[in-house]
C-alpha cells in the first residue's frame, strides 16, 4: 500500500509541509510547502486519501505562507508562490487554505496545455461521465456535491480535463468548493458530509471545501468517456426537468468558457467537436436536490 496523507501523524504532516509535502492529485504532483496551521488542517481534513510520493519530478512547486514585513503583526496576510513567483495579491491569513486551492487550480489552468480544459464540473456513474458547465450562481457546485455524496465518482469540481491523445476525461478528484448558502444546504441534506474550515469574506464570499469520497480518490487514474453535458439551473419551486440543449450552442459555450480552447488552435476545435458529438446536451432545471440526483441516476442508467 502506498503511503497516503492520512497515514501521517499531525506532527509528521507539519514536518512534511515545512520541507515540502509531495502530493499526487490525478495526473499532477504538487510539492506543497507551508507553515500555516490552516493549510495543515485543511489538507488533513480534505486530502487524507491522496497518495504521497518522495523525490523525482514534481509538476508544481508551490508554497502558501504568511507575508513577511510589517504586515506580520497588523492584519497579517498570506500569499501563494509558484516556484518563487507570486501570481496573486496577498489575502488575510485565515484564507490560506482556499488560497492553496485556488493556487492549485491556477497552476493547472495556466500550464496544463497538454489537455483541453473546460470550466466545468464532471462526475461519473456506470462508466459514463457527465459534464456540468455552469455559470456562477447556477448551483453547479451544490449539485456536484450532492451527486458526489450520492455514490457518483467525482472527477473534478472546477476544471474538466480532456486528454488530447484519446479524448477521455482525466480525473483530479480534488475537493469540491462550496460557496455561501450551498454550504448549509449540503450540510443539511447530507449530514455525513465532511466539510473543511469556513473562510469568511473571500472575494467569492464564504467558502468551504467538501472532502472527496475515498473511492473517487482511489480511482483517480481511471479516465472516463463523456456521455452527457448538462447545463444546470436552480429555480425555486420547479420540478426537476431535462430539456434538449442545442449542440451548436453547447459547442460555443464549451469553447468560450474553456481555459484554453483557442490556445490549442485546431486541436482545441477537434477535441471540442468530438466531445459535443459524443454527448447528449441538456438544460436542467431543479429546485430539490433529491429530485436532481434521481434525474441524473435515470440519465446514466
Amino acid at each position: 500500500m502506498a503511503l497516503t496523507l492520512g497515514d501521517l501523524s499531525p506532527s509528521a504532516l507539519r514536518r512534511h509541509l515545512a520541507r515540502g509535502l509531495d502530493l499526487r492529485a490525478g495526473a499532477f504532483r504538487f510539492l506543497i510547502r507551508s507553515h500555516r496551521e490552516e493549510v495543515a488542517r485543511g489538507l488533513a481534513t480534505l486530502y487524507p486519501d491522496f497518495p504521497l510520493r518522495e523525490g523525482g519530478f514534481r509538476d508544481y512547486h508551490i508554497r502558501v505562507d504568511a507575508v513577511s514585513g510589517p504586515r506580520r503583526w497588523y492584519r497579517p496576510q498570506c500569499n501563494f508562490w509558484h516556484d518563487g513567483q507570486a501570481p496573486f495579491k496577498p489575502l488575510p491569513v485565515n484564507h490560506a487554505f482556499p488560497l492553496l486551492e485556488w493556487g492549485m487550480n491556477w497552476c493547472i489552468a495556466g500550464h496544463a496545455q497538454h489537455y483541453l480544459m473546460l470550466h466545468a464540473a464532471v462526475l461519473e456513474r456506470h462508466g459514463k461521465a457527465v459534464i456540468l458547465p455552469g455559470d456562477p450562481g447556477a448551483g453547479k457546485s451544490t449539485l456536484t456535491a450532492a451527486l458526489t455524496l450520492s455514490g457518483w465518482r467525482l472527477l473534478s469540481d472546477e476544471i474538466t480535463l480532456i486528454d488530447r491523445d484519446d479524448g477521455l476525461i482525466v480525473p483530479l478528484a480534488r475537493p469540491v468548493s462550496l460557496k455561501n448558502q450551498s454550504i448549509d444546504i449540503v450540510r443539511a441534506a447530507f449530514p455525513q458530509a465532511v466539510i473543511g474550515d469556513i473562510a469568511l469574506d473571500t472575494h467569492k464570499g464564504t467558502v468551504a471545501h467538501l472532502k472527496p469520497p475515498r473511492e473517487s480518490v482511489a480511482r483517480m487514474d481511471e479516465k472516463a468517456p463523456a456521455a452527457h453535458i448538462v447545463f444546470p439551473r436552480w429555480r425555486a419551486d420547479t420540478a426537476a426537468r431535462l430539456t434538449h440543449h442545442s449542440k451548436a450552442d453547447a459547442f460555443i459555450h464549451a469553447a468560450t468558457h474553456g481555459f484554453n480552447y483557442s490556445l490549442l488552435g485546431r486541436l482545441g476545435f477537434e477535441l471540442n467537436a468530438a466531445l459535443i458529438d459524443a454527448c447528449d446536451c441538456w438544460d436542467f432545471e431543479y429546485s430539490r436536490l433529491e429530485d436532481a440526483v434521481a434525474t441524473f441516476e435515470e440519465l446514466v442508467s
Binding site: A27, F57, A112, Q113, H114, L263, G265
Partner: peptide, 18 residues
C-alpha cells in the same frame, strides 16, 4: 522522454505555436 516531463514541454510548445 518521461511522459510527465514531455507533457510540460509539449504544453509550452503549444503556447508558442499559438
Amino acid at each position: 522522454l518521461p511522459e510527465a516531463v514531455w507533457r510540460h514541454l509539449e504544453a509550452a510548445l503549444t503556447l508558442a505555436e499559438q
